[in-house]
Amino acid sequence: MRYYSYESFKTDMETLVCKLDFNPDGIVAISRGGLTMAHFLGIALDLRKIYTINAISFVNKIQQELQVSNIPELRDNSKILIVDEIIDSGTSMERVLSILKNINPNIEFKTAVIFAKKNARIQPDYFIQEAKEWIEFFWEVDILKSLRERRES
């Protein structure tokens, strides 16, 4: 298991912005993992069109049947960057991309994640690191740790 800190995240978001050869008109964040990325990238790229889509498959670190909901209405003839924190099996990103492309055939989509597994069903257009173990992201760990410590004191 690996802890992924805010400092690492900030550095990786700077790296991702520099890697982008795509000027999106908006961002779709796969909730919840992509929300923090979308916020940072929205500021860095000066984008206010930030959308969310829910793709839920992991519950308590156990992968279950994928549920996709909250599908955003996007404007035709635009460029959209879909973001998530990790591509593990690839099922979530693959399904989200398929749904959005089917509904929006005139939109150009690209995908970006922080971590990607080499053996995933789909590879992102942009990623920063290969995922080789379970990642504990600061936004998942730190608030719960702080709340626990506060309750105990």
Rank of each mutant, 00 (worst) to 15 (best):
46 D>R: 14
107 I>H: 09
60 N>A: 05
32 R>I: 10
108 E>L: 12
42 G>Q: 12
109 F>T: 08
34 G>H: 04
54 N>E: 10
126 Y>M: 08
42 G>D: 09
42 G>Y: 07
125 D>T: 10
69 S>H: 02
65 E>K: 06
149 E>G: 01
81 L>I: 02
66 L>T: 05
132 K>A: 01
93 M>G: 04
52 T>H: 10
71 I>L: 01
152 E>I: 07
18 C>Q: 15
14 E>T: 14
34 G>K: 04
54 N>A: 12
37 M>G: 04
77 N>F: 11
98 S>A: 14
129 Q>V: 06
23 N>W: 00
10 K>N: 13
77 N>R: 05
34 G>P: 06
32 R>D: 11
140 E>D: 15
11 T>M: 12
129 Q>K: 15
114 I>V: 14
114 I>K: 03
2 R>T: 14
30 I>M: 11
135 I>F: 08
55 A>K: 07
74 L>R: 03
129 Q>A: 13
79 K>E: 15
121 R>N: 08
72 P>Q: 05
136 E>Q: 11
140 E>V: 00
81 L>Q: 09
13 M>P: 05
147 L>C: 08
145 K>L: 15
148 R>I: 09
33 G>L: 05
10 K>E: 14
98 S>K: 15
2 R>H: 13
40 F>L: 08
59 V>A: 05
33 G>Y: 10
149 E>P: 00
116 A>D: 00
13 M>W: 06
1 M>K: 11
10 K>D: 13
79 K>T: 03
65 E>V: 03
15 T>E: 12
63 Q>H: 00
36 T>H: 09
80 I>C: 05
10 K>Q: 13
44 A>M: 14
116 A>G: 00
146 S>A: 15
151 R>T: 09
37 M>V: 08
66 L>P: 04
115 F>I: 01
73 E>G: 01
51 Y>C: 03
4 Y>V: 12
144 L>I: 08
112 A>D: 03
144 L>Q: 12
90 G>F: 06
25 D>G: 13
82 I>D: 02
54 N>H: 10
20 L>F: 13
53 I>W: 01
96 V>K: 00
143 I>N: 09
138 F>Q: 09
153 S>I: 09
58 F>Q: 01
8 S>W: 03
89 S>W: 02
116 A>M: 14
77 N>E: 07
82 I>M: 04
85 E>A: 12
126 Y>L: 08
60 N>I: 00
40 F>H: 10
27 I>M: 09
95 R>P: 01
61 K>G: 02
133 E>P: 06
2 R>Y: 14
92 S>H: 06
22 F>P: 01
16 L>R: 13
85 E>C: 11
124 P>N: 05
94 E>V: 03
119 N>T: 11
4 Y>D: 10
152 E>D: 13
18 C>M: 14
131 A>C: 13
24 P>S: 11
109 F>L: 07
141 V>Y: 12
113 V>C: 11
136 E>I: 08
138 F>H: 09
61 K>W: 06
118 K>N: 15
123 Q>S: 12
117 K>G: 04
47 L>N: 02
76 D>E: 13
103 I>H: 00
36 T>M: 07
91 T>E: 15
114 I>M: 13
109 F>G: 08
119 N>S: 14
115 F>S: 04
108 E>A: 11
70 N>K: 09
121 R>H: 07
115 F>R: 04
53 I>S: 04
22 F>D: 07
40 F>C: 11
150 R>H: 12
6 Y>G: 00
65 E>H: 02
99 I>R: 07
71 I>D: 05
43 I>W: 05
54 N>Y: 03
